[in-house]
Nucleic acid binder design. Structure first.
Lengths: 250, 250
DNA sequence: ATGCTAGATTGGGTCTGACCTTTAGACCAC
DNA sequence: GTGGTCTAAAGGTCAGACCCAATCTAGCAT
């Protein structure tokens, strides 16, 4: 009420939980690179005496780090918590949760993919090794040889991930893995894959692969863009036929 | 031993942990949309009697879901676990862990950004609302008015995130948030921001904003691409001066 | 020597039951 | 109204026990 009272202002304060404190401490140490990959953390009971926290608390902290992909926990003698650098999968799985949890429009996924894959192709053309190239060719053969829908989709995903991998950019690779997984599950039920689609796909992949082989970045971008775009258009069309159209707000 | 015995064959089996079982069950239910956002889960002690697991186990399961961003846990009376759809932040933080944990080259971050931002600009031009537009203009004014380096960087990040938001694609927005955060911390120490850089930035943002305003997707892409590319080049040049060059393998 | 099996050991996983802390709400006193 | 005080609900922490899994090792059989 009085002026003197309202002069003092405080922002809401956080009182961290004990397990969070421990988790944060360990996380910072791990991220700082202080412990190389594979370093074993002390056993839980040892952490208990060091931190003077209860085992429950210690275990919660470890669980947090495990879910974040910073440690891997093995049971049994010579088991324990081992430092682990987070990999692409953790990004992939969190994107997966976002997509599934928000029930995002398939269109968002395709939009993102159209944004990313051409760049992956570009980087692949620039940085690919001969091993990368062979992997591209092998996976594309698998697509051509695929028997049923599921084989086709899986091999298709593999090829696209191979492109991302060949670009040697972990971030883009992680994102692509997540998107592929989402598209895989989304496209699986729809029956829009027939022999013709498969042939078109294989041909498109071949032409992209050729550009990557010849280190022709611009062509790789162009061809990949066209391929992804037409795939997205086809998938969305099928989707429109199956689901009710939702009007966009503006 | 006998032939009859060897006829029965089993493959290696996985024995999941109890807490994972519970976590998976709850996760599937949440993701299926069965519980709308904000729905309270039963209290821990109630889950104990329902599942016949111990409270420890129940709590571990809840902790997992909390870290994955699927529930939010409040203490105190009327507290408990509330269903929450995972947001952009969870993607952002996992990307953050990837970047920091792997000590990724700044170049990867910039590559990714160059892949994504032009597309964000394109989508923004297509889908922006008038509110989005105002936010773009406001944040850009803040950049122009920024006093010190930190102000500048924060406002800069805000503008770029505003572009992503205007595209109305949650996936791209999440990724951009993570990248921005990484670039923010990376560029912070370097002293490469001066009045000239700031002016160039503001002008570039203005021209992108104009394209978005006029719903000119192609121009938005082009201008954003140029802007991001030159920013990346400048940042990398500064980075080269400060850090030792690491030879690329091929 | 070789090879295998039966402990012994180490370490995570689960359970129990208790107590502490935080928060919302109600009621009361000034 | 403002501020205490109490109570109930719920999560947070603790201590201790026991269970289960993985590994190592010593000893036995061939």
């Amino acid at each position: 009420m009085s002026d003197a009272r309202s002069a003092i202002r405080l922002s809401p304060m956080e009182v961290p939980k004990a397990s969070d404190v421990l988790a944060n401490e360990l996380r910072e140490r791990i991220l700082s690179g202080e412990y190389p990959e594979g370093t074993p953390l002390p056993p839980e009971r040892e952490l208990v005496v060091q931190t003077r926290m209860s085992r429950t608390t210690v275990r919660e902290a470890l669980r947090i780090l495990e879910v974040q992909g910073l440690i891997r926990i093995k049971a049994g003698r010579a088991g324990g918590a081992f430092v682990q650098k987070p990999g692409e999968e953790s990004v992939a799985s969190s994107l997966d949760l976002l997509i599934r949890g928000r029930q995002l429009r398939l269109a968002s996924v395709h939009e993102t993919r159209e944004a990313i894959e051409p760049s992956c192709a570009r980087l692949a053309a620039l940085h690919r090794t001969s091993g990368d190239l062979r992997r591209l060719e092998v996976t594309n053969e698998e697509i051509a040889a695929s028997a049923d829908l599921d084989d086709f989709l899986r091999a298709n995903v593999d090829w696209h991930i191979a492109v991302a991998t060949a670009g040697h950019n972990e971030i883009l690779t992680g994102i692509m893995m997540a998107l592929s997984r989402a598209i895989y599950t989304a496209t699986n039920t729809e029956g829009f894959i027939n022999a013709e689609v498969r042939d078109i796909t294989v041909r498109a992949h071949r032409s992209v692969t050729r550009a990557i082989k010849e280190r022709d970045a611009d062509a790789a971008v162009r061809r990949m863009m066209r391929h992804v775009h037409s795939y997205a258009a086809a998938a969305l069309e099928v989707d429109d036929r199956t689901t009710v159209a939702v009007p966009e707000e503006d």
